[in-house]
Each structure stands twice: as C-alpha cells, then as structure tokens.
C-alpha cells in the first residue's frame, strides 16, 4: 500500500517527465537525416573558427554515425538535463512527502526508515523507466530514418544514467530533509547539476570527477567499457546522502 501511495504522490511528475523526455529523444532521433545534411554542408564549407569551433567539429564528427549522434544529442545533452530535472522534482517532496498527509502517514504503524525506503525505491523505479523508455523508443523508431540503435546501447546508457543520477536524487532528498521549504532543495540541486553539466562541457577532464561522466556513459560510448569506478563511487556517495537524509527524518519533529 505504501507503494500505491508513492505512485499517487509522484505519478503526474513521472508521466510528464516521461512524455517530455521521450518526445525530446524522438525529436532528436527522427530529425537525424536533416541535421546530418546540415552538418555535412557546414563541413564542406570549411572548418569553423572561433571559440565554439572544437564543439562544432566534435558534433560533426559524432554525427557521422547515428550511434554517435544519439549519444551526443540525446544522452549527453537533453537526457542529462531533463532526467536530472525530474529526479530533483521527484525527490523535492522529501522521502516522506510533507505536502499532505504527513501526520496521517506517521501515525501508521510503520517506521520512518521503511517509509523513506519505499518512497525512494518507488522513485528510483520511475527514474529507471525515465532513463530506459526514451532510449528504447529511439531503438524502436530508428529504422524509420534508415538507421538502427542497439538495444544493448539503450540498456547500458539507461543504467549509467540511473546509477550516476542517484547522486542528484539523494542529494535533493537530503536537502529536502534539511530545509522546510520545497524551493531551496530544488534550486540548490539544479544549480549543482547545471554547473556540473556545463563545466564538464568545457573541461571534459572534469567528467571523471563528477556524476556527469557516469550519467552520460562517456567511457562506454568511446571505449565500449562501462565506467566501473564511477558506477561504484557515485552510488556509494548517493547511499551516504540517503542514509543522512533518513537519519535527519528519523530525528525530525512533525
């Protein structure tokens, strides 16, 4: 029944997020032939100059294959930001939703630890679907534009997104347990996510030290090997944050 309650609390955010991320991913994938044409035309007109030259050249290079294009446009850019946004929004209520019914929930014969665990598990299940279903949609629709996208790529990138992204989810949970209002946790977590995304864009070496590198599955894309170190470190960091959030909720007065 706690699972049902968690679903009722989060369903609209989940469904809106799912629709938005799938539409964005499909929009990217299905416009590949057009974008590819534009980029080829641009590269025939000579190499671009200026501060964004390396970015453009990289985009051209990645877009030479559908796999590279999907990774760059869908996984590395749109999904990272949109998925993180919805991870933060799902966590912003706190592990124990305080908007309505908190006193009723706490009067049930259930420990706060279990309440937090069920809510987090339900959220992470939804976040797993938010990571997987858009990439599966790309796999299914890729033949429509004359290409293919491997199911294994979809699955492995979704796993990277979910495991790396648990950091932002658990960070927001902790912030929600510390602050009374809803907005500070959201703003602080999103600010960190944007800073991480932008900084690794311009200084790719930083990706190894941030969850962004794991979430975007950069290592897997380039070398075919999962980012094992990051896949171990960031969930451990996330688990520590979750533990702190639960302890804070257990000690809190309602």
């Amino acid at each position: 029944m706690l699972w049902y309650k968690a679903w009722l609390d989060t369903r609209w955010r989940f469904l809106i997020g799912l629709a938005l991320i799938i539409c964005t991913a499909l929009g990217n994938a299905l416009t590949y032939p057009t974008v590819q044409g534009i980029l080829e035309e641009a590269s025939r007109n000579g190499s671009p100059n200026g501060p964004l030259a390396s970015e453009i050249n990289l985009a051209v290079q990645l877009s030479s294959s559908f796999r590279g294009y999907v990774w760059d446009q869908v996984v590395h850019h749109n999904m990272y930001y949109l998925w993180t946004l919805f991870a933060v929004l799902l966590a912003a209520d706190g592990a124990l939703s305080q908007r309505t019914g908190a006193l009723f929930t706490l009067s049930l014969p259930v420990s706060r630890r279990r309440l937090c665990a069920v809510r987090a598990a339900a959220d992470l299940l939804e976040l797993g679907l938010l990571a997987l279903l858009p990439l599966l949609a790309v796999t299914l629709t890729a033949p429509a534009v004359g290409h293919s996208y491997a199911l294994a790529d979809a699955l492995i990138h979704a796993i990277h997104m979910l495991i790396g992204g648990t950091f932002f989810y658990c960070l927001t949970l902790l912030l929600a347990a510390v602050f009374e209002d809803r907005w500070r946790p959201i703003l602080l977590a999103l600010a960190l996510a944007i800073f991480s995304g932008v900084s690794t864009e311009f200084m790719p070496a930083l990706a190894a030290f941030s969850p962004v590198g794991v979430m975007t599955g950069e290592s897997y894309f380039h070398t075919g090997a999962p980012a094992w170190t990051g896949l171990l470190i960031w969930p451990a960091v996330a688990a520590s944050l979750f533990f702190c959030a639960v302890r804070r909720i257990e000690d809190r007065d309602y």
Binding site: K5, L8, D9, T100, G101, A102, L103, F104, S107, L108, P109
Partner: peptide
C-alpha cells in the same frame, strides 16, 4: 501506533 487511533487537528489525509 499498532494499538492506537489518532486524529490530528490538521485532518491532513491523502488529498488524491
């Protein structure tokens, strides 16, 4: 809590 019924002054039940 297994043996107690509680009604809070806020009546904050699950709205949805």
């Amino acid at each position: 809590r297994q043996r107690t019924g509680f009604v809070s002054d806020e009546r904050d039940l699950y709205e949805s």
